[in-house]
Design a binder for these strands. Structure first.
Lengths: 144, 144
DNA sequence: TACCAATGTTGGCACGACCAACGATAACAG
DNA sequence: CTGTTATCGTTGGTCGTGCCAACATTGGTA
């Protein structure tokens, strides 16, 4: 599976480079998460709930940058696995209040470890200082 | 459309940051390319053919990192628009030799300009030195 | 009250990456 | 030369992800 050199005009584009790296990241992260039986969205959602406490699905979506519809599906799957708890909000009956269960916290810890392992594999060619540089630059471009 | 802070555990992951930036890049580039009537794959393929000369579809796919099937579809579309020329290889009748037409070169120039404009918009918050740093780091991670 | 906004949910669309299979052709081993 | 393997272009499909539309329900507000 020998890969050749891309054209110089393409190789020089940050947008192309970042897409290539994102693709690699997608695969590496998916592999590490799959090893512990999970997905990217699961991790981000569980992390948000663990850090900010219970919230509605809409708020959860805004936190992690997911559409309401995708949140609904993911929450349903996670609730079916007992990783989080979804109950109607008594103060606002439009909303569901979502909270992490104990099992969910266990899964989150596993996903967190997998995520860090994935970063190590993805950034294997970079020193610690360079990884920090890259993360800082990306964060600025991302507006985070 | 107020966006909130993502969880710290997620925000600290380079894989997440790079995906966010890649998403932004996708949208910005698509908008700029759409303004001149083109797509990302068109640009990469035309650039490869312009830089390395005529080649088979399979070679083209290896150059730009596209599957043979996707190359076939993209080449058909570009040939229909007269941007490239696809003829059977007399030396190897399995292959199609693909070459850029004059119209294709014009389109490539327009796409090139659009691509650079997109980079400027995407990396507006970074200095020239920082853009070079980012590109260099991404290139090392991408293995290019 | 009447109107507008937000929520959860279902269903769908678009795009990109990827894979499987096929017929045709080439390259190679015996 | 013959049989096997490999490559090519092509069609068709799968999967993940981001996004939008619509709907009924509920809350907030003029």
């Amino acid at each position: 599976m020998e890969t050749w050199d891309a054209p110089a005009r393409v190789r020089a584009l940050p947008s192309w480079l970042v897409s290539q790296v994102a693709l690699q990241a997608r695969n590496v992260v998916a592999r590490h998460f799959g090893a512990v039986g999970g997905h990217r969205t699961q991790f981000t959602m569980l992390a948000a709930l663990a850090e900010f406490g219970p919230m509605s699905q809409a708020d959860l979506g805004r936190r992690v940058g997911l559409d309401r519809s995708d949140v609904a599906a993911a929450v349903a799957a996670l609730a079916a696995d007992g990783l989080l708890d979804r109950t109607p909000d008594p103060h606002d009956r439009r909303r569901n209040v979502v909270r992490v269960t104990t099992e969910g916290q266990v899964r989150l810890a596993a996903l967190d470890a997998a995520a860090h392992a994935a970063q190590d594999e993805l950034l294997a060619g970079l020193s610690t200082a360079e990884r920090d540089q890259l993360a800082a630059l990306l964060a600025r471009v991302a507006g985070v």
